[in-house]
Simulated scan of single mutants.
Amino acid sequence: MTRTLDPALLIARQRPVVVRGLVRDWPIVRAGRDGPAAAAAYLKRFYRSAPVVGYTGDPTIGGRFFYDASGTAMNFTATRVALDAYLDRILATLDAFDAPARYVGSTDLDTYLPGFRAENDLAADFDGATPLASIWIGNRTTAATHFDMSNNIACCVVGRRRFTLFPPEQIANLYPGPLEPTPGGQVVSMVDPRAPDFARYPRFAEALASAEVIELEPGDVLVYPALWWHNVEALDGFNVLVNYWWNMAPRFMDSPMNTVLHGLLSLRDRPDSEKQAWRALFDYYVFGPAERPAEHLPEPMRGALAPLTDLSARRLRAQLVQRLNR
């Protein structure tokens, strides 16, 4: 029997939630029970030759995709590959202790494996939002601790996965790395949770005290909110995960990371007294109740303080671009 998920209800808890066995009847999960070769053969049924990005790292990185010793480049290479051939490379070194780390991450399901979701899709009501469904494939690899700007539903379908999750308020204790370059597009923690260097990163002990470690078996589903930091370890020689990212914010809203970057440009290096005053303004206009700044103003006077629409968002964006280009 198909079980339906209510993502909004689970995300409202603002904590990670595990739903055991929710997708255990998916055909990809059943194929995985017959072994890695059967799972790979199932995936190949849907592949239509479009190249994907394959990430390959030397055995010495221990499967952790991160920075090299210089800290200015990655410890892996990213190349366009044929998925079927890349799957064969993973299968060829399943049990080798010196196997390269191989990983295909965040690959759009509908684009690269058309038809897969017709047989393997989550029964969920996203309340009008359109989720982005992706697939992640690899051997024993680790995605360094990072956060995403969307809510996430992670479906473990082949192999086991270990998630170590940290709430957003632990950011300072996670010692974030540079804004760019990054291993996968998002800022990562400089600390390896598998072997933390407490002498170098002493506050990480506080982060660990608040961490949630969750191990998933094939068929299990993990739901967690946007901006939760997560370190993801694939624990077997062949692993597949399907995930759904979604936000309830309207599509016309800009990325908050752009605000962070602008804050670095306009606020960070001002005197502390000024920054505290600007904090009060941000609390009033941005982080407080959305209706408060405009509630005492007649409607014709509200301008950008009124609830945003697609049209007013475009106008505000044009105004910002004009100001930035002065």
Rank of each mutant, 00 (worst) to 15 (best):
G105R: 04
Y285V: 02
I135K: 03
D236L: 08
G159F: 05
D254V: 11
N173G: 14
W246R: 02
G185R: 07
A306R: 06
T4Q: 11
W246L: 02
M257H: 15
S70E: 11
N258Q: 15
G21L: 13
T60H: 15
A211K: 03
L9K: 12
V188W: 01
D125L: 05
D236F: 09
V232G: 14
N239S: 14
A290Q: 11
K44P: 05
P7C: 01
G105Q: 08
P131Q: 13
D68C: 07
A211P: 04
M149L: 12
Y112P: 02
D25H: 06
M253W: 14
N325D: 15
Y244N: 12
D58S: 06
K275I: 08
P289K: 14
A124E: 00
H262L: 01
F238I: 15
E206Q: 11
A280C: 04
F46M: 00
N258V: 15
G263F: 01
P36C: 02
W229V: 01
D121V: 06
A78L: 01
D95Q: 10
D98M: 13
D148M: 09
Y55C: 05
D6W: 10
L113W: 00
Y285G: 03
F46S: 00
G57E: 09
W228K: 09
E295V: 14
T141L: 01
D68K: 09
R279K: 14
F65L: 11
L316C: 08
V286P: 00
V158K: 02
P167T: 04
R117C: 14
L87K: 08
T164Q: 04
N139M: 00
Y42I: 13
R20L: 03
